[in-house]
Write a protein that binds this DNA or RNA. Structure first.
Lengths: 342, 342
DNA sequence: ATGAAAGCGCTAACAG
DNA sequence: CTGTTAGCGCTTTCAT
């Protein structure tokens, strides 16, 4: 009695061939309504599910997408950015009826074994790569392996790739202009790692904005590592130069900076205005609410999935670089709002 | 020339049969060193990788584990708990040379389609289920589907299941005793959702501790939803009853509570002591540092993976319920430390 | 130590 | 509309 439940067996029970059952399962119109009903009855009754691996083998397509995050240290996951991104990507993957697999490789040396799994045929149809550092060999490796992929972020240099990014440079520039318009003159910068494209772009964008306002950092710059702790440490150092405003390249670092400002007995925004990048901190989570350059994290994830699917299905011609605009959301931390609103 | 790269093709190039190549790939000792070298050379040269789906079909095993998170709303991902858990599980999965796939189903109605994918054969060998609510039909469904699974948390009622949990009750009890020992008398509770086992257990544990100290909540209890905002709102209400201490069932909610206390012009720990559950907030992220019941999130994830693998490999007999101890980490928020340390 | 052949469960081209 | 058949790429007896 304990026969394996496969097309053949379902067919046997319904009195048809396995092809017919396959047609029913795949909604092929070439099945009489009567037969279809009978087969469907057997399927529900037995709880039959097609064997995913067998189907993948026959179709040469898995309906699985991979999300690759190199340099996935634990602190990375403390940043709300990744939670949101994974959430958005997962949602979008479900929407296109696919499955998401996660490849995180941290400092451990399992890196090689993971990468070889990523590119092995029959496991995933394509991958989304994010959080790469500039010059990461992974990109070239994927290219060589003929594995379809989409990069979230700005691909550093070389050959054309499909990518989805946000306008980091424009957003950071807007932050600088905003602070300058509010009359801030001694600005400081807590930058993101210079080996990431977001880090580079946010820094150059902020400098763009300062230059347009005839301002200069005059050395008031410290590099953080995305964490709250690094933001706090950076701010502590910067305070020695008495800045009247600071731009932190991520929300988390801004939160750290604000706590350093407060700990130094200074007020935000009166003494030091703060603007950050991400827009992931709810207004009621900091006091005053953070003014931040909002990036559409979830949209980025969704778009990456759609783009990857198009690449996999080969329904897209040239490598596309999609860039989403960012938007400055004004809270109270920059000093733009009247006191009572804060 | 563009032949598909498979065992046959590698064999052709190396002048051996596909069986021999298979043996080489799988480290079968029955291959002469000479042949082995030759075949390996061809493999490296061509960049051959075995086809995962084909292998899964032949072996009836995928080497893929699934992580299922029902009720995965976006706010859930703002909690550092899940980032840590996913990280730990991912690490452990890599360690056993397997791949992790993620099944998140939120409020969208793709739920059914995802569930059916979870249990379809040939996709994953087993799944880890977490963040379930009590009485979640998913558990019964998995049981019926013969899909090996391990629950993170306490399985509510029914049949025996494999599970990994932390001692929520004991940890919460310790929090109550600690506060009572410090002389706090009017305690309040910000509980976690009552439809989760962690919520229930932490509440009853805290009540245990109070009872042992001859104390009572006298109605000073509000239910939060794990978020910082809910913690703040709960605390605002509770302050009307002038508690001298509060236990928040999660770090995030405690952070919200602390901000409500400060906003009301009260001091922590002098006016209101705060103890939380999770131990995921770094000491320098709140002021004063949170006193918290630490749960070993990463260990839980790792243990769940190992247990699941054992279940899949059928190397474990009876359903095991593993419970990790928790530990109270004393910061300054409960008032246990002298002022200058804060 | 190596090769031949069967089979994992599915799809799809072909025949009727 | 339905059944037959030949693979998809791999593992695994069974010969040799």
């Amino acid at each position: 009695m304990a026969r394996r439940l496969n097309l053949e067996e379902i067919g046997r029970r319904a009195g048809v061939s396995r092809s017919t059952v396959s047609r029913v399962v795949n909604d092929d119109p070439n099945v009489s309504l009567k037969t279809k009903k009978r087969v469907e009855a057997v399927i529900t009754e037995t709880g039959y599910r097609p064997h995913a691996a067998a189907r993948s083998l026959a179709l040469n397509s898995t309906d699985v997408l991979g999300l690759v995050i190199p340099s996935a240290v634990e602190t990375l996951f403390a940043d709300p950015y990744f939670g949101r991104l994974i959430f958005g990507i997962s949602r979008a993957t479900n929407e296109v009826q696919m499955t998401l697999t996660l490849f995180l490789f941290g400092d451990v040396p399992d890196e090689e074994s993971i990468i070889s799994r990523v590119v092995s045929p029959g496991l995933v149809d394509g991958v989304i790569v994010t959080a790469t550092t500039m010059g990461d060999p992974l990109i070239d490796y994927l290219r060589g392996a003929e594995m379809p992929f989409v990069v979230i972020g700005r691909p550093d240099d070389g050959g054309p790739v499909f990518s989805v990014d946000v306008d980091n440079r424009g957003g950071a520039r807007a932050a600088a202009l905003h602070l300058a318009n509010l009359g801030r003159r001694r600005m400081a910068l807590i930058s993101a790692p210079a080996n990431t494209s977001a880090g580079v772009d946010r820094t150059s964008g902020f400098l763009d904005g300062l230059a347009e306002s005839d301002l200069d950092l005059e050395g008031r710059i410290r590099e953080g590592d995305w964490t709250e702790g690094s933001g706090r440490a950076a701010m502590e150092e910067l305070l020695a130069d008495q800045p009247d405003a600071v731009f932190a390249a991520s929300d988390r670092m801004a939160v750290g900076a604000m706590s350093a400002i407060r700990a130094a007995g200074l007020r935000c925004p009166e003494d030091v205005g703060v603007v950050s990048f991400d827009g992931l901190i709810a207004p009621d989570q900091t006091s005053p609410p953070l003014t931040s350059v909002v990036q559409p994290v979830r949209k980025v994830g969704e778009r990456a999935v759609k783009l990857l699917k198009a690449v996999v299905d080969d329904t897209v011609a040239l490598p596309e670089c999609i860039v989403f605009p960012t938007e400055l959301a004004v809270g109270g931390s920059c000093g733009a709002l009247p006191e009572k609103v804060l």
